[in-house]
Structures are given as C-alpha cells and as structure tokens.
Computed example of a mutant assay.
Amino acid sequence: MIRIINDDARNHGAKFDMIFTDPPFEMSGSELKAIFDCYDFDHLLLICSAHQMLDFYKHSNLDFAWQMVLDFKTPTKNRSFAQPHITHANIAYFRKKGVKSAFDRRKIVRQDHYSDDSNHYYPSVFHAPKIGMQYKYQKNQAMIDDLLGAFDVKTVCDMFAGSGTTGLAAYEHGMDCTLIEQDNHAFTIIEKNFQMLGLCDDK
C-alpha cells in the first residue's frame, strides 16, 4: 500500500522499518534530527550533501554504516566562484545502535552496472544522470529502485517525497510506503501519478 500525505513531516509520527529520503540540501543536521525524532525507525537512508551528512551525524545518536556517491553528471548552476560545480550527492546509511544491517547487495542487480549472479557487484558510485526529468523534484527512478531494492525492509517512509519516486520503487519491491510532501505543487504531481496508477491510499 502507498499512502500519500500533503503536510509538514513534523506533524506526523509513526513506526517504519526505514526512512528513505532526500531532504532539502539547505536543511541543517539539527533540523533533520528534530523531524526524524518524531518517528520510530531502525534504518535511515539519506540522499544529501556531504556537509549535511556530517552535520546530521554530529547531532544524531545513530550508527553510521556506510556512504556512497550519487553521480548526477549535470553540474549545479552555482554562481559563487568560491564553490565548485557540484555534480554529485552523497548516499548515507545509518541504523539504530545494536540493529543489524538491512542492506544486502545480493538482493538486486544494479541497472547502471552489469553484474552476473555470482558477483553481486554493487559499487560505491551510482551513475544517475538527470536526463529526461519531467519535474524539478524528480530523482533517477532506476537508481532509487536499485538502492531501495538492496534493503530487506517491509515499511518505508519518505517525508520529503518530491514527485514520489520512492513510492514507485517501494511498490516495485512489494513494500508499504508512506509519502509525505509539504509543497502543494509537488503533492499534486504525486497524487495525479499515483491515482492514475491506482496505487495510493490518499489521506
């Protein structure tokens, strides 16, 4: 079941196996922690900037498991000459202390790399170019499918849902998913797409 909610994530709290989300890059680590503290979860997958990842870890009481790089190919339109053009994001996996990792690279064959069944090749760089995207909130669907599919979880929450890419991946892998999006325009995109596919419980 896919559940979609048009609201601020701070107004909701529930239990999920995993939070899988791509928060606004300008959001601080302490702000993220305050939101995540409203929820009961064992695993957290963040798509974020390096600064955001480090700032969140400083405030968090979670164990850091691993980090990967998401290669967008297309640079940001950075106007500051004191900053490089950013062509990547970080993928950071955290889990509660004492909780066993839910990641198993044998669960999926990556679409951005050839891998035979014996190799289970899951490199630390994801090639996920932003090509053919219809919405500014959209993520590379193949990357999200392959990333979420490598985790042994049954319930997922994305509280910065954008256009709902996480929900489509969760459906693909038979997971229940709650999508929370505050932006009305982005939520309209989620609602339209998921109702057209007959996938969501709109609340």
Rank of each mutant, 00 (worst) to 15 (best):
L148R: 02
F151C: 12
V125R: 05
H85K: 12
F20S: 02
A9E: 14
H88C: 13
I144K: 00
T87F: 14
M133W: 00
A89P: 06
N90R: 15
M68E: 06
L46A: 09
R105P: 10
I190N: 01
P84Q: 08
T21K: 08
E26V: 14
A89H: 13
Q111Y: 06
V125M: 09
Y114T: 14
M133Y: 01
L197E: 06
H173R: 00
F94W: 11
F103V: 02
D7G: 08
H12G: 05
V109S: 15
R10Q: 03
D202C: 04
K154D: 08
K15R: 15
N11A: 07
F16C: 06
R95P: 07
D63E: 07
N78L: 15
D152R: 04
I4V: 12
S28K: 04
G167P: 01
H43W: 01
Y93H: 08
Y114I: 15
D8W: 01
K73E: 15
T74Y: 11
F16W: 10
H185V: 05
I144T: 11
Y171R: 11
Q111P: 04
P23T: 05
G98W: 05
Y171I: 00
I86V: 15
S80V: 05
K100A: 05
K58M: 14
L46E: 02
I4N: 11
Y171L: 01
H120R: 09
K77I: 07
K97C: 02
I19Y: 10
A186I: 10
K136E: 03
G198D: 13
F36P: 10
F72S: 09
G164F: 09
P75I: 14
K192I: 10
D42C: 01
M68K: 02
A65C: 08
